[in-house]
Design a protein around this nucleic acid. Structure first.
Lengths: 190, 190, 190, 190
DNA sequence: CATGAATGAGTGTTCATTCAT
DNA sequence: TATGAATGAACACTCATTCAT
């Protein structure tokens, strides 16, 4: 009995990310993915139940990987300001080194593919950082708002601004992201 | 020979927005749009060159309308702080009254459909507000950063947070957007 | 606006009957039907909602035609014996001149495609003959059984025996169908 | 190296009969049969050369079993009338206790799957009964027709009428099959 | 013997677009 | 201008069968 080739899902994932960035979320098809990966369309269905299942699992996997990298070099007992800046740096670093993955996430996130259920599952990855933010609020360093909202004020602007800087005729060329991080901090600090 | 019926493009636009929110950007088709609007597929090609052309023109039209509504009740000579808060209120008001239109924009914006060229064209709608921000910088009320960046810090967080609040199992339920506006202001003020 | 070509459904029907007799009910496909008829697969969907719809409508149409031809030269006021023998002759004549159509019906009738609802609709075509049989019962010429059962004893044996005679290595070669008709009559007569 | 497990073909046969009655002859597939039986698709090919081979062998097996059961409690030296009525009762009994098997046979019999060669092989199962019928002709109890034809007049009407009574909205509800047997006898008796 | 992996060819159906009226 | 008819190409997915273990 032949065993599942664990390099195949990896190759499929890479193809998906590549194709979505080249031709767009709306234009990927199973046959394009199969051909680009060098597989038969039928083989995709050994690893995934359906196209939706494939895209959802790919989304979950990439998103989890991104969340994890955002927590690098962060010690929950550090000063909240250090945590916030490190978080911002990590996010930027991930987007810079995994631009295609990130842009895949952005396309998928705005589609009906990503369900509330998936988001809730992913939310668990943020629990540590949410706890740190809550402590920051209690110790008076951060505004007395929902920690999720404060966190959103770090992630969202940086992500959207990053996307803008990636465009060929960007309206925000040569931005110094340290300034952006500072603005995030100003938004959430007490 | 009848003249082009200008109510048809309007009806088509409405259908597109409705369908995209119901079945997603990736699943709309010319025949679905035609059937839902009560037209023949062939008729769509009288008003638009192709599917892409149709979606692009629709995007441009909606985006322009949104930009315009964001400038309501704003007087360039007002205090920059008043301008910023009014801008934020206008944006929120538009998203709340035109949720489908806004969510269409978000789906389209992340797709390869929207070209740099289109973005540059749309950028012109912001010139007045950019000028006001520049004055705010010069008079020392705002941080000395690119006005576009400052503006981004108003739009992006509010838009993304709004999307989050729309979800059924939102992680940010019952948010007071006035607090959000204040955070935007804190981020960009000098 | 182009008009529907009424020769197309006829051509499609002919292809279906031909193909089903050549390759069997289980092996026909939309693309085979399309190619054999000289059409695009998509065109089939202008005339029929789905494959099932196509096969069902074809079945109904052929079955109705057969029922009609079975009533040729039958006068309801004739002697019931004459009616029965004419019915038998008509059935045989139809099967002989429309062998492919008849064999299509037999394949379809044993598939789950043909619903009770369809059968009920078709049953209406037999009302006149059923009435004649009822009169035959009342006047004592026929057995006092359900007219439908008596009718079945005419149709079924002849149909099944006809199918047997059609086989290359038939076990019933050179049958005289007049004898078969007589046996049918013996079965149902009082 | 294990030996072929003879319970597997039995299990496969049961699955085939079940599936064909549930989803129809045209919709069964090797993988569905494998999954439903709890086997790998590849395993089916240990027991059968191909899908067609599998269906043919299954048809032959079931058909033989049915023929055998039709001969229960029949003594060739009995009166031909007793033989005929017992044959009819046996046929009905088989169809009632093995409805799925019988309906499988009917679906298969009308498909091109069943070849003349197979029919000839199966015909041997009827030799005893054919001989009895021939004696019935010689002794003047039966019509002077081909014994096969006389036999057909027993089998066919009962089978077709049985199928009709099985339908949900049957046109022949609550039939007394003893009357049907009598009609068969009337058809073939001298 | 038995199997899950693998596949090219096929399935029914819909696509964006053009044609003929 | 407006349309239903028409289509080749593509869609997501399944097929019967074979391979490698």
């Amino acid at each position: 009995m032949r065993l599942k080739d664990e390099r195949k899902p990896e190759a499929i994932t890479k193809t998906i990310i590549k194709l979505i960035n080249n031709i767009g979320f709306a234009n990927i098809s199973m046959s394009k993915i199969a051909k680009e990966t060098g597989l038969s369309p039928a083989t995709l269905y050994i690893y995934y139940e359906s196209k939706d299942d494939m895209l959802r699992k790919t989304y979950m996997s990439i998103k989890r990987q991104m969340s994890q990298e955002c927590l690098s070099n962060i010690n929950i007992s550090d000063d909240i300001k250090d945590i916030v800046f490190q978080l911002c740096r990590n996010l930027l670093a991930y987007m810079e080194t995994h631009a295609d993955e990130f842009l895949f996430l952005e396309q998928a996130a705005n589609s009906p593919l990503v369900t509330d259920d998936m988001i809730q599952q992913l939310e668990e990855n943020n629990q540590d950082i949410i706890r740190a933010f809550r402590k920051g609020i209690e110790t008076g360093y951060l505004k007395n708002e929902s920690p999720t909202l404060l966190l959103a004020f770090c992630y969202y602007p940086i992500q959207q601004i990053f996307k803008e800087t990636r465009k060929e005729k960007s309206m925000l060329p040569g931005i110094d992201f340290n300034k952006v991080f500072q603005m995030c901090w100003d938004a959430i600090k007490a």
